[in-house]
Amino acid sequence: MDERTPRRYRCPSALRRGLRRTDVPAGGRHVSLRPPCGRTAGEVRGELRLRRGANAGQYGRRLRQLGYTGRIVSFEPTEEAFGKLEKAAKDDPEWWVFPFALGREEATQSMHVGWATMNSLLGASDYGKERYRRFAKDRTEEIEIRRLDSVMDKALAGLTDPRPYLKMDTQGYDLEVFAGAGDRIEEFVGLQSEVAVLRLYEGSPGMSEAVAAYEDSGFGITGMYPVTREDTTGRVVEFDCVMMRAAAAPK
């Protein structure tokens, strides 16, 4: 199978032009981020972006490039990636970074590292091992896991009218992050989660299970964007699923 870095699906140029025309202008309370193309819940006017699985800060930098000036709170537990994230955010007073993961329970756990942007708390599935040779490596690092509801007050400190948006990219662990928000998930106006059609990680939820959990909490789908595809069959491996609460839509 293909060992190259997972390729982002490219929208046809005509479609990209059409999507641009419908975007909400970027600014202090508005930002449109297309992951990897099209409109997303960035248009829900979120005042606070909580990013779990921040890696080296690529998402945060992109938000700033698009004109978002509100607070970004990023969580990255691995030592090497956190060092890069901290460097990316050091001159930005409204980009807060924390060196731990988010999950259902507060704990210390071993994380599979050495998989580049695909590091995970879950082991690779048989399908994942067949698709990516990098999964043959199995180095681990002890990391700290916190619940999202335990850090929300700190993340929201100083904001008079917070409208948090949750961006997750945790390699099969998104539902665990979501569960750790507890009742405070009701405060979020939107979310983005990577959902699996073909599972790369052992024990990770399938797309239908993940989407059902988000819908049960009041979120509705605004877009499904292919992240990776199989080269030979064209089958989608994972989607970026973007969701929002209908009541949070701009008036």
Score class of each variant (00 low, 15 high):
residue 201 Y to V: 00
residue 127 Y to K: 04
residue 149 D to N: 05
residue 136 A to Y: 04
residue 148 L to S: 05
residue 168 M to S: 04
residue 185 I to K: 00
residue 125 S to E: 13
residue 187 E to S: 10
residue 171 Q to L: 03
residue 221 I to M: 14
residue 161 D to R: 14
residue 154 K to C: 06
residue 173 Y to R: 01
residue 141 E to I: 12
residue 232 T to D: 11
residue 195 V to Y: 00
residue 126 D to S: 12
residue 184 R to L: 09
residue 225 Y to C: 05
residue 222 T to G: 09
residue 139 R to P: 04
residue 150 S to Q: 12
residue 182 G to M: 08
residue 219 F to K: 05
residue 115 W to I: 03
residue 127 Y to W: 13
residue 190 G to S: 14
residue 187 E to G: 06
residue 189 V to L: 05
residue 216 D to M: 11
residue 208 S to F: 08
residue 159 L to C: 06
residue 178 F to V: 04
residue 146 R to L: 02
residue 214 Y to M: 15
residue 154 K to I: 06
residue 230 E to H: 14
residue 163 R to Y: 03
residue 192 Q to D: 10
residue 156 L to R: 10
residue 171 Q to V: 02
residue 153 D to P: 03
residue 121 L to F: 11
residue 169 D to W: 04
residue 114 G to N: 10
residue 158 G to C: 10
residue 119 N to A: 11
residue 136 A to W: 07
residue 220 G to L: 04
residue 126 D to H: 09
residue 164 P to A: 02
residue 174 D to I: 04
residue 198 L to I: 13
residue 227 V to Q: 07
residue 118 M to I: 10
residue 154 K to G: 11
residue 147 R to Q: 11
residue 200 L to N: 04
residue 148 L to F: 10
residue 119 N to E: 06
residue 209 E to S: 14
residue 207 M to Y: 06
residue 228 T to P: 00
residue 144 E to V: 15
residue 126 D to P: 03
residue 178 F to N: 02
residue 175 L to Y: 03
residue 138 D to L: 09
residue 167 K to R: 03
residue 140 T to S: 07
residue 227 V to N: 07
residue 132 Y to G: 01
residue 122 L to C: 08
residue 157 A to V: 08
residue 117 T to W: 02
residue 163 R to L: 02
residue 170 T to D: 02
residue 125 S to C: 12
residue 217 S to R: 14
residue 115 W to E: 03
residue 221 I to A: 13
residue 133 R to S: 15
residue 213 A to Y: 07
residue 129 K to Y: 07
residue 190 G to T: 08
residue 117 T to C: 09
residue 142 E to L: 13
residue 229 R to Q: 13
residue 123 G to S: 14
residue 122 L to I: 09
residue 226 P to E: 12
residue 202 E to A: 14
residue 121 L to A: 10
residue 197 V to Q: 12
residue 208 S to D: 14
residue 147 R to D: 01
residue 126 D to V: 09
residue 151 V to I: 09
residue 127 Y to H: 12
residue 116 A to M: 13
residue 207 M to R: 08
residue 151 V to H: 01
